[in-house]
Design a protein around this nucleic acid. Structure first.
Length: 482
RNA sequence: GUCUCCGUCGUCUAGAGGCCUAGGACAUCGGGUUUUCAUCCCGGCAACACGGGUUCGACUCCCGUCGGAGAUGCCA
């Protein structure tokens, strides 16, 4: 049993937060890099939060991200069931055993109302003194039908120390630990209990989770000890933060933008890019390399590369990384992937899509920005003649007028608007008048596009627009300049 | 409030006492290539939170301060 076993234990809430995905990624990476096993467990003990279809979202996300699991509800395995709601009896049994061992007690108090200055054994514990009830009293209360929960009995004295693979040795005074609820009144376990039972039963060797669990880990260890079980290795991960409009930083959440995997994909980020990016948020390969495939990540992964401090999610860098992945795509692949985003189906642009896509590939950071990039092809924007001013190309309204006046008849005489033909006219003009090629090029491109930044040059655009529309736009520009 | 953790360029990070006049990447600024836009190439700006120690020597070790985050749920 020296084999590394890690797990990813999401709650079916309907979407996959990138923080959770990163946790899954590191757990997967740890397992794969050690030739271990990666287990998927569904933590659905909170009936109130259950969302239909949420489990499918989890499967789909893991699959698209490339994180395959060896055991799980759908994959099977020797330690099932892998869905906590199906393990309900098990937790009840262990909770009662824990009570018998003295590590927990029945509590009959009402749900927490936060009445202020209660005299509680610990911060946030049982408000009454249920832990002091005799066995006979407890039995009587249960028999009377009073609702109950089972709470962990945490000692007031002493301190608990544990070692985390990332954070090192951590000591917490027992008196600040609360008598947390292990078994809820509906008979379901809380996360705090279920994860200990399941991690032990499923023989998880490395518990990989967010650092928000750091301060409650001593309570879990008390549970392991009370049962006489071996405590797993802990790998607590730094949190992913987000920055809000005011510049305040906090745990990344919906108010920071798109934070779920499916959101990001819908915006046109490629799954591979997302995975690559989040892998580097809190972990470093200790080299300057930044672009990794999943397989390469598994080869490079080392626990020592994990960072302690939280990391701010930077959409800007993700965009850059995404653009790298887009550029690396085979052209045919890009044409196919970008088409649904471009929304050209059924429009005159559809037949030119392959050509447009070819121009777009090196100019696209996220797929969802494509419509705005090509909007000028559908309709000429309303523009002012100041766009013809460009120092570098030595172009202005004056020279543009000269260019258009002379070249429009030549364009009109063209039988076909190919890139070569259009560029040829511009080149001839430049040669004849001894000006930079940029001068006619700039003028023609602005006339064609009505905006300064365009995907592709004058010839490209003319080729897509076609003769009729190009001529119309050139004429219009000349009118503006007159 | 209490407890825990964290603190290198704006952001992600390298750095495990001398290799650091602190390296890389994103962003940003400037230049070049290109038929214009982009790609691509080159260069600039930019950080060890602060104060004490320890040491011949500290970004690296210790203490304190300040700052940030997390936890404190019959949520996970």
């Amino acid at each position: 049993m020296s084999c590394v076993r890690t797990r990813f234990a999401p709650s079916p809430t309907g979407f996959m937060h990138v923080g959770n995905l990163r946790t899954a990624l590191y757990a997967w990476l740890l397992a794969r890099s050690q030739n271990g096993r990666f287990i998927l467990r569904i933590e659905d003990t909170d009936r109130a939060r259950y969302v239909d279809n949420a489990v499918e979202v989890i499967y789909a996300t893991l699959e698209r991200a490339g994180l395959d699991h060896d055991e799980g509800p759908d994959a099977g395995g020797d330690f099932g069931p892998y869905v906590q709601s199906e393990r309900k009896e098990l937790y009840g049994k262990y909770a009662k055993e824990l009570v018998a061992r003295g590590g927990a007690y029945y509590c009959f108090c009402e749900k927490h109302e936060d009445s202020g200055e209660e005299e509680t054994p610990h911060a946030g514990g049982c408000p009454g003194h249920c832990g002091e009830l005799s066995a006979a009293e407890v039995e009587k209360k249960i028999a009377s039908g009073a609702p109950w929960v089972i709470r962990q009995r945490v000692p007031r004295d002493g301190a608990t120390t544990f070692t985390d693979c990332v954070y090192g040795e951590i000591t917490i005074e027992n008196k600040v630990l609360d008598d947390q609820i292990l078994l809820k009144s509906d008979g379901m376990p809380t996360y705090n209990f279920a994860n200990v039972i399941d991690d032990h039963l499923m023989q998880i060797t490395h518990v990989v989770r967010g650092s928000e669990y750091l301060s409650s880990t001593p309570k879990y260890n008390m549970l392991y000890r009370a049962f006489g079980w071996e405590i797993p290795q802990y790998v607590h991960l730094p949190l992913i933060m987000g920055r809000d409009a005011e510049g305040n930083i906090s745990k990344l959440s919906k108010r920071h933008g798109s934070v779920s995997f499916e959101n990001l994909v819908a915006e046109g980020y490629l799954p591979e890019a997302i995975v690559n990016y989040i892998a580097l948020l809190g972990w470093s390969p200790k080299s300057d390399r930044e672009l990794f495939t999943l397989t390469e990540l598994a080869e490079a992964f080392q626990l020592t590369g994990l960072n302690k401090s939280s990391a701010v999610f930077d959409y800007g860098k993700l965009r850059w990384m995404n653009s790298e992945y887009i550029k690396a795509l085979a052209p045919e692949k890009f044409i196919e992937m970008a088409r649904p985003f471009a929304d050209v189906a059924g429009t005159p642009l559809e037949s030119a899509w392959d050509k447009i896509a070819a121009l777009l590939q090196s100019r696209t950071e996220i797929l969802s920005e494509i419509p705005e990039k090509i909007a000028f092809l559908r309709a000429l924007p309303d523009y002012g003649i100041e766009l013809f001013d460009n120092k570098k190309s030595k172009c202005n309204a004056e020279t543009a007028k000269a260019v258009l006046t002379e070249t429009i008849p030549q364009f009109a005489a063209l039988s076909e608007f190919t890139l070569e033909a259009v560029n040829g006219i511009a080149a001839t003009y430049a040669q004849k008048h001894e000006v930079k090629l940029g001068q006619p090029m700039w003028a023609i491109r602005i006339a064609l596009a009505g905006q300064t930044v365009t995907p592709g040059g004058a010839g490209d655009i003319a080729g897509i627009l076609g003769k009729e529309e190009s001529l119309r736009r050139l004429d219009l520009a000349l009118k503006k300049l007159n």
